[in-house]
Nucleic acid binder design. Structure first.
Lengths: 340, 340
DNA sequence: ATTAAAAATACAATCGATTGTATTTTTAAT
DNA sequence: ATTAAAAATACAATCGATTGTATTTTTAAT
C-alpha cells in the first residue's frame, strides 16, 4: 500500500504474485483473463478495500469523465431542476458535472468557456445568457472537438445539438387560452429579442391572434428583461394605453407576478378585468393569489434529455458532428388567474 | 504535439531544446528557474496554446482538487444559493465541486458518501438529511482523512467543522417579535426533532415566552416535515384548539405559507387575527399576500464561509483534526404578516 | 587565471492504470 | 507422447506532470 493507505492494482498483483496488467484486465472484466483468476483478484481487491484511482485511469484514457454545465443562474427554479436531471443522468453513466453560472453576462460566459476548456471537460451543456450574441467562445470548444448541447435556449452553431421546448406552440396555446376565456385586447410581455425562445413565444402569440381574427398591434408587445420590476412597469404602461386591456400573456412567471400584484393594488380584478398567463411554472406561480396559469416546462426532463444526447455524442465519436434538435412538449396549467 | 492536438510540457521542452522538468518548474514559477528562461518558456507555451493537464498534475500530487457537496435538495432556494457561494469560493482557489442531493433520505446519503470516497474528493461540504441519525458513512470519510464541514444543519462528529446560523437567537427574536406585536397564544411549527436546527429554534421560542412570562404549553408545538401540506394540517389543528391562537412562529417558510393560505380561506385576517413569522426568507415569502415576516439566512454567505473553512482544512494538514464551529448572524425581516 | 561556491539546468524515477506485444501455459489433435 | 493452435498471463511502454538528486554552468573571490 502507498502512503495514503490506499490499495493499488500493484498491491493486489503483489499479494497474488501476478502481473498488474492482469489485475487491471480482471477488474475491467476483460475476456483475456480467466474466470478463476478474476474471482481471486476481485476477492483480494475487496479484502484490501481497493478503489480505482480515476485520475490515473482517466489520464491513461485521456478522458476526464466530466461534463461542463453552464446556466444563467443556479438559483432559478427551472435551472436547478434541470441540473438535478443532468446530474442524475450523468452520474448513472459515471460522469461528474461541473456547474457554472453566467449570471446572464456574456463576459462571464466567455471566462467559463475558457475554464471548461482548461479543465478538458468531455462535453458541455449550456443555456446561453441573454447577452450572448457572439459565439467565438463556443466555437472554440467545438474546435477542440468538445460536443455541445444547448438546452432551453436555442443556439445556431454548426455541429451542435439543441434540446428545447416548443415555445411557439406554448405561446400559441397560452394566447388561445386567453382568447377562449373571453380576452380580446391581449398584451404580450416579451424578453430580449436575441433569444429564440422569446421570439418563438412572440410568434405563437401572433399566430393565435390571427387565427381568431384579432388584429395584432405592435404597441401591445412590451419587451424587457422580464424581472419583477419590469412586470410592474409593463402593468403601468398597460393602464396608460388607450385600450381596455383584458389579457396578458407574459413570457415568464416573474414578470407576470409583478404585473399581477401591481394590477391588484390598482383595484383590478384578476381574472375578471384582466386575465393573466405566465410561463415556466415557477413554484411561486401556484402560491400567488390568484394562482397563476402558466406553461409547465419540466427542467428535470429537459436536463435528462439533454444529457443523454450529449453522452451519446461523447461516446460516439462518429456521430459527434451531426446536428440534432429535440423538441419537448409543454402543457398549459390552467389556474384561477385566467379562467373565467 | 500529441494526437489530440494538445501541447504538453514535452512539446515546449523539445521546441526550446531544454528539459521538461525545467519547463514544469518555470510554469509553476519555481525560484529554481531563471527569469530569462521562464520568459522564453512562457512565450513558447502561449505560442503552442499549452494548457496544463490537470489529470496528470493531480495524479502526481495525489490531489483531485475536487470538493464534494451534499445537500438535501438542489432546487430549494436556500441550498441553490449556498451552492452558488460554495462554487464561487471553490473556483477562486482552483477547486471543482461535485454536487449531490440526498433528497432527505439516509440511504441516498450513504450511497453518495461512497461515491465521493471513490472519487477521492479532497473535502466534503454537507447539510445532512432529515433522516440522518446514523453516522458511519460520514465517519468513513473522516477515516480516510477527508475533512468535512457541515453547514446549516449541525452534526456532532469529532474532528469536523460546522457553519451554522444562530437558530436559537433567531427563534427567540421571531417569537419576541410576535409578542411585542401583541400575540399571546403563539404556536410553534417545528421540524423533525433529530435536527439541531429545529431543536434550537424551538428553544428560542420557549425562552422568549419565558422572558415575557407567557406560559409554555406542550400542545402549542406542532412537529412535522414542514411541507406545505403540513402547514395546512397544522392550521386545521390550531383552529380546533380550545384557545384563540393569535400568533404562529413556523420553523420554515413553506409550512408558514401553507397555514397562511388556509387560514385566509377560513376567513382569518393576517396579521390582525393571527400574526405569522416564517423562517429562511424564501423568494415566495415576499410575494405571498400579505408578505411573510421571516428570518433571513443568506445561503450564499453560509456557502462561502463553509468553503473557506473547508479549504483551510484541506490545505493545512496540521489543523485538519481541529473541530471548529462558526455561527453566522441572521436578521428578522418584518413584513405585513406580523406587524400590527 | 584558477577555484570554490552558488545558481541553473538535466536526469531519472514516480503517481496508478491501461494496452499492444511477447511469452508461457493449457488444450486438443495426431 | 509430441506438437500446433489457442488461451492465459507477463513484459514493457505510455498517459503528462512533478520532484529529489546529479550534473553543468555561472558567479565571485583570490
Amino acid at each position: 500500500m502507498n502512503k495514503n493507505n490506499k490499495a493499488t492494482i500493484h498491491d493486489i498483483a503483489r499479494a497474488l504474485n501476478i502481473d498488474s496488467s492482469t489485475v487491471s484486465r480482471a477488474l475491467n472484466d476483460s475476456p483475456r483473463v480467466t474466470q478463476k483468476t478474476k474471482d481471486k483478484i476481485i476477492a483480494k481487491a475487496n479484502e484490501l478495500g481497493y478503489q480505482r484511482n480515476h485520475l490515473a485511469s482517466n489520464l491513461r484514457k485521456s478522458k476526464t469523465y466530466t461534463l461542463g454545465v453552464v446556466v444563467p443562474r443556479i438559483s432559478r427554479h427551472f435551472f436547478s431542476s434541470a441540473i438535478a436531471g443532468i446530474e442524475e443522468t450523468a452520474y448513472q453513466e459515471g460522469y461528474n458535472v461541473v456547474i457554472c453560472q453566467s449570471l446572464e453576462a456574456l463576459e462571464r460566459e466567455q471566462k467559463i468557456a475558457e475554464t471548461l476548456l482548461a479543465n478538458r471537460v468531455d462535453g458541455v451543456l449550456i443555456s446561453i445568457s441573454m447577452e450572448t450574441s457572439s459565439y467565438e467562445h463556443l466555437q472554440a470548444l467545438r474546435q477542440r472537438n468538445i460536443p455541445i448541447v444547448f438546452f432551453d435556449r436555442f443556439c445556431d452553431i454548426p455541429d451542435t445539438c439543441n434540446v428545447l421546448i416548443d415555445d411557439f406552440q406554448a405561446g400559441f396555446n397560452a394566447t388561445e387560452h386567453l382568447i377562449l376565456n373571453g380576452s380580446k385586447n391581449i398584451v404580450h410581455f416579451s424578453g430580449t429579442q436575441n433569444l429564440d425562445i422569446y421570439r418563438n413565444r412572440y410568434n405563437g402569440y401572433k399566430v393565435a391572434l390571427e387565427k381568431h381574427n384579432i388584429p395584432f398591434r405592435e404597441d401591445f408587445v412590451l419587451s424587457s428583461k422580464l424581472m419583477k420590476e419590469d412586470g410592474v412597469e409593463n402593468a403601468k404602461k398597460i393602464l396608460a394605453l388607450p385600450y381596455k386591456i383584458d389579457g396578458i400573456f407574459s413570457a415568464n412567471d416573474v414578470a407576470a407576478i409583478g404585473a399581477l400584484q401591481y394590477l391588484k393594488e390598482q383595484g383590478k380584478r384578476i381574472p375578471e378585468d384582466i386575465a393573466i398567463v405566465g410561463f415556466s411554472n415557477e413554484p411561486i406561480s401556484s402560491i400567488i393569489e390568484p394562482p397563476l396559469s402558466t406553461i409547465n416546462q419540466s427542467g428535470f426532463e429537459i436536463g435528462k434529455t439533454a444529457t443523454s444526447l450529449l453522452l451519446s455524442k461523447v461516446n460516439n465519436k462518429t456521430s459527434k458532428s451531426i446536428s440534432e434538435t429535440i423538441i419537448l412538449k409543454t402543457n398549459l396549467i390552467e389556474r384561477k388567474s385566467s379562467v373565467r
